[in-house]
Amino acid sequence: MERIRKHHLFWPVLVLVALLVFNLLYDPDFFRIQVRDGKLYGNLIDILFFGSPLALVAIGMTLVIATRGIDLSVGSVVAISAAIACFTISKGADQNDPGLVATAILLALAASALLGLWNGFLVTRVGIQPIVATLILMVTGRGIAQLITSGQIITVISPNYKVIGAGTLLWLPVSVYIAALVFALAALLTRKTALGLFIESVGCNPTASRLAGIRSVTVRLFAYLFCGFCAGLAGIILSSNVSSADGNNAGLWYELDAILAVVIGGTSLNGGRFFLTGTLLGVLIIQTLTTTIYSTGVPPEVNLVVKALVVLAVCLIQSEGFRRTLARSLVSVRPSHQRVEGKVTTRG
């Protein structure tokens, strides 16, 4: 029991289960999944479906945070990627041409990775703190996205493109497969190559890592690049789902949700150990929370209040100062408790 409670995924799993149980009690049909036209329908599928773009961004964010960094620009990168993909397709003669769609996607992904690299360059080479360095792209990025779309919402009519964000493959949405694939890729890359060790080592003790011969600059550059790439992919899914790109609103708040998911998943903002599975659970918690709020009929915007409380609770639990205060108040209770026990034994 003690070992289970000490496990790093204990709290996230507990919260997720509690949320699901609450939903089940509120609505016995919550877990019901139906098959219609070779497609699964149900609340759980919705959670997976709406959670996949966030999961993508959060996976990239996990690696960046593990290196003691942070990437505030992911929301803007989502918008830029969506804008590039839709703009490219909209300029084509045949919007449904598979070649054109592939070109659009590749262009968007390359640009996103490049933007990630730019962040990494500012952090590692110029030596600007990550928050500040990525803030620049966070501000500029939305402008760039709107520049690409000329401030309009670009709509594309391309069934081939729409498959990515709204299509179905083997009963499940395609985007879920994409998120799963990237998750597997990230897990493979960090656990089957030495990258994971290097990232954790650089995030944990940069000086010792350098002296052990780890190329910390390359490692951090990669983390930012990968994060940009993931955000780009999320942008493609989001724009494909609605067949349009909105430079202003695509990916709004994504940076905050992604950071939140990472923190809930147990990865510390101070870098070091990271937990991709934890991040995934964090995403599911956030998405389930949203779904719960929708299904209970509370205005969805209130979601933010709940999120605020979750952020605070998670951070307070991680804070040593808070735990000490908590422990002190427990200790001050304990003596009286012991006295009661003492009485019981003398009587016995």
Binding site: L256, V305, V311, C315, Q318
Partner: peptide, 22 residues
């Protein structure tokens, strides 16, 4: 509690925005 200002004020941001909609 020595929590980064970034996170605390982020929570504050969510909270205030959410309260508006309440």
């Amino acid at each position: 509690y020595r929590i980064q200002p970034f996170i605390v004020t982020l929570a504050g941001m969510f909270l205030a925005r959410g309260l508006c909609f309440v």
